[in-house]
Amino acid sequence: MACKVQKRVSLRRRLHILRFLTNSNYNKLKVALENVKREYENLIATRRDYIRLLDNNVNDNKDVKIVKISEGTFMVKVTCEKGGGKLVAILEAFEEICVNVEEAKVSCENEFSMEAIIVSEDQSLDVTYVTEVILKAIEK
């Protein structure tokens, strides 16, 4: 009889120890899982912010450089995001300010880019005015 009682006490002790170890490991795993979830959510938020910043930089990537070669002749370099009929809008803007395109190179691989030499009929045309006209054409 004493042997059965000792076995029962021994089993209860082992069971108690197993429950304690299981619960402590479970709690540790639960805390670790919560930390991993929190870190994952932070990484997702950081990724979302990074993508938003990249999109803003891509959308604001309008570059218009105009160099006056001689009186009434300009070198125009335009780079911006592609799409939306940029070339047509720029050519219409050139018509509005009465300039002729002597030579042009256009590319639309990753972005819209154009290099052109334009000649103005009006000798008083200045760089800032041409820049404003082209920027307005790009934004259409």
Results as ranks from 00 to 15, higher is better:
100 N>D: 11
130 V>Q: 01
66 I>L: 05
126 D>W: 03
61 N>S: 07
129 Y>H: 14
66 I>P: 01
61 N>E: 12
96 E>A: 08
72 G>D: 06
120 S>C: 13
110 N>S: 11
125 L>Y: 01
90 I>W: 00
72 G>R: 01
125 L>G: 00
57 N>G: 01
103 E>V: 06
61 N>D: 14
127 V>F: 08
108 C>P: 09
79 T>N: 10
67 V>I: 15
111 E>I: 08
78 V>G: 04
99 V>H: 00
114 M>K: 06
84 G>Q: 12
57 N>A: 00
77 K>R: 14
120 S>Y: 05
102 E>G: 15
119 V>C: 11
58 V>G: 01
127 V>H: 03
68 K>L: 14
69 I>V: 15
72 G>N: 03
77 K>T: 09
122 D>L: 04
81 E>A: 14
127 V>I: 09
57 N>P: 00
103 E>A: 14
95 E>R: 07
124 S>E: 12
129 Y>Q: 12
122 D>F: 10
61 N>A: 02
85 G>D: 07
89 A>K: 13
104 A>G: 05
68 K>P: 07
103 E>C: 12
98 C>V: 06
123 Q>S: 13
69 I>M: 15
71 E>Y: 03
101 V>T: 15
60 D>W: 10
85 G>R: 09
76 V>C: 02
100 N>C: 11
91 L>K: 10
93 A>L: 02
63 D>C: 06
110 N>Y: 07
57 N>L: 00
89 A>V: 06
101 V>R: 13
115 E>N: 08
70 S>G: 10
